[in-house]
Design a protein around this nucleic acid. Structure first.
Lengths: 129, 129
DNA sequence: TTAGTTGCAAACGCTTTGCCGAAAA
DNA sequence: TTTTCGGCAAAGCGTTTGCAACTAA
């Protein structure tokens, strides 16, 4: 990996991502970065998100295959997807290591870890019905 | 939902998907369907995969955001992604309902279910090193 | 007969990339 | 001064869609 520099653009993206509790798309981040740096380009957003991922400061989330979302929390944690409004939330609760052991015993592969995504109706949508 | 017809194309896609143990992409399916129906089009593959999903006969798998993969096994089951060769396998072992309960207690959302993807090195890659 | 389906090709939408001037270190 | 980075715009690429002809039921 080559030497990385902390540019204004990269710093802005990282700060915005750490501030937000939700998991914005690249273009949502773009809109917000433009408030600070009006002539920033979408290409710059994508390039920096990729660098920040390599550096382990940001996680990419696969909601579905339409577009990627980004998470400023690099810790291992699960996500919840609301089927009604499409929002993505972090879940409270710890990583379930037992799962890796259970499935290691039943399968021939060397399992290093897992991701889990929960789905249902979020608290906001429950209350607005 | 409107009435669905079992066309040659739809039948071919379904049969191919049920036969394969791996989880092909739309264009891999396209290549195989062309052996039976030379003038089939990619658009037809996509449209039928979408219909077969609605009918609950096929599952869509999000490997990463580059493209979708399809699974001819509509049962709830977990997947394993090999980080070395990129293959996707079905895992043996049952759905862990407890997970839904554990995280329902710790979070304000109504959880209906979850997906889990495991990763590591597959048995084939272990043996070839 | 008729409504769903197909092939073809164009359109889409998110993401990546080439180029060259700008700016971290 | 060197080398990474950014802005801009074009290209890439998997997926979707409009349309007229076709076909399962």
């Amino acid at each position: 990996m080559t030497q990385k520099r902390m540019t204004r653009q990269r710093k802005a993206i990282l700060e915005i991502l750490k501030d937000r509790k939700d998991h914005p798309t690249a273009s949502e981040i773009y809109i917000q970065v433009r408030n600070r740096i009006p002539h920033v380009s979408l290409g710059t957003i994508y390039r920096n998100l990729s660098v920040l991922q390599e550096l382990g400061q940001v996680q990419e989330i696969n909601v579905n295959n339409n577009f990627k979302r980004y998470d400023g929390n690099p810790e291992q944690h699960y996500h919840f997807f609301c089927q009604d409004c499409g929002s993505v939330y972090d879940l409270y609760g710890s990583y379930q290591e037992e799962l890796d052991q259970i499935f290691s015993q039943k399968n021939p592969h060397k399992i290093f870890g897992h991701n889990a995504d929960f789905f249902g109706t979020c608290s906001h949508c429950i209350n607005s019905n």
